[in-house]
Design a protein around this nucleic acid. Structure first.
Lengths: 343, 343
DNA sequence: GACTTGACTGGACTCGTGTCCAAAGAGTAG
DNA sequence: CTACTCTTTGGACACGAGTCCAGTCAAGTC
């Protein structure tokens, strides 16, 4: 149909293809009248270059692939938006996909992205090792790789992370200072199934304030709302339920909260709730939820910045940027009941 | 670096490029030993085809561009996820962008997408006309266009929509049946600035139950959380505030709710709240919010399906699929106070 | 008028894949 | 052994843009 190429423009203007594209890229080389003839042809034919063809020839696509955990989770949605804006400002396109927290899907997505010969990848890797070797290969082929939110243990790529360990310590210290001793987190660390920093640090953070994790509170699980819901129902029905729940993500906090409502437990009267992420609903529930907020936009800008400067040829050491979480105290945490303590 | 092309594979296997790619595409044409030699070369070099080059030659990219309002809004995030899954299942890639509800940005995004020579577009268009002419051009060039969630008035493209008019009627009837007369919606219809179906139907729906819209409740605005917050503060401070608020999107409901909390108004005691969209937090606040839920996944599947069947060459009439909203009654709507009525 | 200089323009080739047609090889029948 | 078929393989060209180098042409110099 009306899909016109540079040769069509050239023919229409009565010049060669070379001259036609010079009109677009290096207009100062052309005589004014030639330039005008070509530009008239461009507007007449509504010519728009095929970026793929240019990219093919140039050997770079000016596209960055982004693989996130789940676009439905607001943390990632916000991350995606800011990444997109920043990359675009740097002259790059963003190709967005999700791995649904599965390393196997990482592999599928990365393959697809490499098929488009993306210049760089910003990756929130899935838990697991399936994609590891493939990432190395991409790296060797010159694809710049940045990790966000989660690091493959020992991976040599730069990263942008929350200070998960620090945040966990801060959270545990805060709950401990209120008098809590029996604290449960949504998700136990597991090197294969759930290898992330928050649950990893939890026992250490507890030990540092002289507490230990109750084994019956520990469960390896993915951090979905439904899993957190099931988990909360179960632990709160134990003979000695926790006096505080520590949700490792905003999505899991929603599950905890729903379960607590269903059990008719009052927050923070019967049980305190502390969560990562600062979603707007957390301010709307009664009581409002005390949270450890992540500086999402800063993190996105950092990741985009690292990628863009690497792509512009700046040589730097792989850098691991760590951002602190901010404890925002609202109403969902209080001292535990005395009866609960003495039980 | 190690970026290998089909010619590298061919050389490594001692065959021609044609033979090498036949090994990948039409292996039954080759002698078993030749096939094996090529496949060995493929694995040895970790060859993966450059999809852009193939697309360039084939004249189609097997990519669908998706332009949504805002990925941060859960409705769109969910829509994006399901669209992506469905398109992938149909063998297409998805290129996701957002227009932030601005028609001018539509144009930018569409240009970028066309630069990639996408085969089809699924578009939640921004309010306004800037992109209209460009869409027509794309259409003439053979790009299949589907609209979701919002239709450009009179546009000849197929669409997937919520039955906005029906949902508004249902909502108004419900509030009226509880005894409400002074009902306010977040956002007044405006042909230029806010031309969508929900606010458009509102006066009609009110008239049908014998009510009329109070002029002092009307305000043209974008449906963001912050705008709804400001709006709610203002209308609730009027001498005769509404007895029911009808939030046209989930995001604006959050703004309404926050404002009502700040004003210390009880829901539904002082004012009822009804909202579009069924976000998970709406079940967690007290009282839980009564909503008109949209069948997001069904809508996404319908849009993807229309696109895929059009791309596979099936000729059909432009179809406008409409999905009903579901009223889910929870606790945020009740009969207005008598004092409010008589005032 | 022959020559240099510079501004301007065009042709041939490249990127990696796909398509088409021709050529070479293997096998069969007369 | 030749003719013919069928299988298997290779070469040339195309897609649309970008790069390099060579060519044309007018103006200026001696």
């Amino acid at each position: 149909m009306g899909v016109s190429s540079i040769t069509d423009v050239a023919r229409h203007a009565g010049v060669s293809a070379t001259t036609a594209k010079r009109a677009l890229k290096e207009p100062q080389l052309l005589r004014p009248d030639t330039l005008e003839r070509v530009m008239n042809a461009v507007t007449a034919l509504h010519y728009e270059p095929d970026l793929r063809a240019g990219a093919l020839r140039a050997g770079q696509s000016r596209t960055v692939g982004v693989v996130l955990g789940s676009v439905v989770e607001p943390f990632f949605a916000q991350l995606a938006r800011t990444l997109g804006q920043e990359l675009r400002r740097g002259g790059y396109n963003m190709l967005l996909t999700e791995n649904e927290y599965q390393s196997a899907q990482d592999l599928t997505e990365l393959r697809l992205l490499y098929g488009q010969r993306i210049d760089a990848i910003i990756l929130r890797s899935g838990y697991g090792e399936e994609s590891r070797e493939y990432l190395e290969r991409l790296h060797k082929r010159g694809v710049f790789i940045t990790q966000v939110d989660y690091c493959l243990p020992g991976a040599p790529y730069p990263s942008v992370m929350l200070d998960n360990a620090g945040a966990m310590r801060q959270g545990v210290r805060y709950l401990h200072s209120l008098g809590h001793q029996r604290i449960a987190t949504t998700g136990k660390y597991d090197p294969q199934l759930h290898p992330e920093g928050r649950s990893y640090t939890f026992p250490t953070a507890m030990a540092e304030v002289g507490l230990s994790v109750q084994p019956e509170y520990e469960r390896v699980m993915f951090l979905t709302e439904d899993n957190a819901y099931d988990y909360t129902l179960d632990v709160m029905r134990l003979p000695h339920p926790p006096t505080a729940l520590f949700a490792l993500t905003g999505a899991s906090a929603a599950g905890c909260y729903r379960a607590l409502q269903e059990l008719n437990l009052s927050v923070p009267g019967d049980v305190s709730l502390l969560s990562f992420d600062n979603y707007s609903w957390m301010n709307l529930v009664t009581p409002a939820i005390t949270v450890l907020a992540q500086p999402v936009d800063q993190m996105a800008r950092a990741a985009a910045g690292m990628t863009l400067s690497a792509l512009s040829g700046v040589q730097t050491q792989p850098e691991n940027q760590v951002f602190p979480a901010e404890l925002i105290v609202r109403g969902s945490c209080a001292a535990p009941k005395l009866t609960a303590l003495t039980r």
